[in-house]
Amino acid sequence: MNQEPEFLAKGHDPADPSPWLALYLDRSTPLPDKVKKAWLTDSSCASRQYLLPFLRPLARAFIILIQVVKTFLPRRWSHSRLLHRILAWGLKRFVSPEANWLILRHFHLGAQALAFIAANSPVQITTTPLEPMEIDDLKDELFVKHDLNLFNFVIRLNQALRDAGVEMHAPPTVDFSMLRDPPIRLEDMPQGKLNFLDLQSAIELFTPLYQLMLTDNDFWRAANSLQLDETIGIYAAKLLGAPQHLILVNNSHPLVPMSTLRAGYRLVLHGLSTEMLHSLLMEMKAAQQGGEPPAPIA
């Protein structure tokens, strides 16, 4: 895992500049170097370049086919626990270390983002953090629970705000205490000979399976949860008194759900926006404590 990705090992050639090196060196977005390095290593791999263009249309065709098939299945037909066991098995055996690391990080970052909003909102609200330490922890239906957590949080928060007759606003002192770098190590991820599949290809492959083995209601809720990126971004911006940070959240309006055919691509954007929101909050935490923002880790 200490081997440098090609775009870093090769260096800069002015006659043939690497777009991945440009994105890695660019500091316009608030991602730590270790996260950006893993993200771009995954994005520049062979499976994403050569396999994804074939997988994506096939996966979307299967989504349409499965939707037709499910019209003849019982409405509550669901095998969530089996689904999560298959997903964990596939992640451990076929998905790249970088992709698995980013997936596990996402649960921790999402839990911290909700905890940040809860701690700083003008009303009392509880959260249910999901913080898997290894891939096998996902077997406990964590993907479905992640979606349920998000919708339940938005409902409870806004119900409490309505009952109290208040709006979200910046508190006198912002509490960043719940924010930290997740204790998940890239080198601990599976690194077998078959662990080659990039994040986007894995998501495109798993999305039809997700649709097949969950109820229509669960699948649609999971797809529509991606529209809440902008909602969470607005909450954070109001608490920080800094609406300009919404520039990193761009998934269209939350009141306009998109087709499930693009769920895989939007899920990748969801993961990236969560990483960026967490990075912004970590920088602000460091500034509040009187230190410098976290130093990038190459």
Rank of each mutant, 00 (worst) to 15 (best):
N149V: 09
L280R: 06
P17L: 01
V144M: 15
D13T: 06
S279A: 15
N149I: 09
A46K: 10
P132N: 10
S43G: 10
V256D: 13
A118P: 12
L130T: 08
S43E: 11
L212R: 14
P14N: 07
N2D: 11
N224F: 07
P17Y: 01
S78P: 00
Y24K: 05
P5A: 00
L150H: 14
L179E: 03
A286L: 02
D140H: 09
P293Y: 01
I232P: 04
H169C: 07
K70A: 01
L91C: 07
P296I: 06
L179Y: 02
L83F: 10
M189Y: 07
L87K: 13
V154E: 12
H270R: 13
T215A: 02
P254S: 06
P190D: 13
K145F: 08
P171I: 00
M168Q: 10
V249L: 05
G264W: 08
D136K: 13
A46Q: 08
L8T: 10
W101K: 03
P30G: 05
D33N: 13
L212F: 14
I125A: 06
F94H: 11
A237M: 02
P172Q: 00
F54P: 05
L214S: 15
T215E: 03
P32E: 05
Y265Q: 14
P208L: 10
A111L: 04
I247C: 14
T173N: 09
I203K: 10
A88I: 10
I86S: 02
I125G: 01
L91R: 13
L102Q: 10
P171V: 00
A15V: 06
L109H: 12
Q112L: 01
L8H: 08
F176H: 05
L197R: 08
P74M: 03
D140F: 02
D147L: 13
L239F: 00
L197T: 14
M282P: 01
F176T: 07
S96K: 07
V174G: 02
F107T: 04
D188W: 05
A118Q: 04
Q49K: 15
P243M: 04
D136Y: 05
L194F: 09
Q112H: 04
F116H: 04
A164D: 08
A113Q: 14
A242H: 07
N100A: 03
K70E: 03
I66E: 11
T127K: 02
L179R: 04
G110F: 12
Q227S: 15
I64K: 15
I125Y: 01
H169L: 03
A263Q: 13
D13W: 02
W89L: 13
L267F: 13
R162P: 00
M189G: 02
A46R: 13
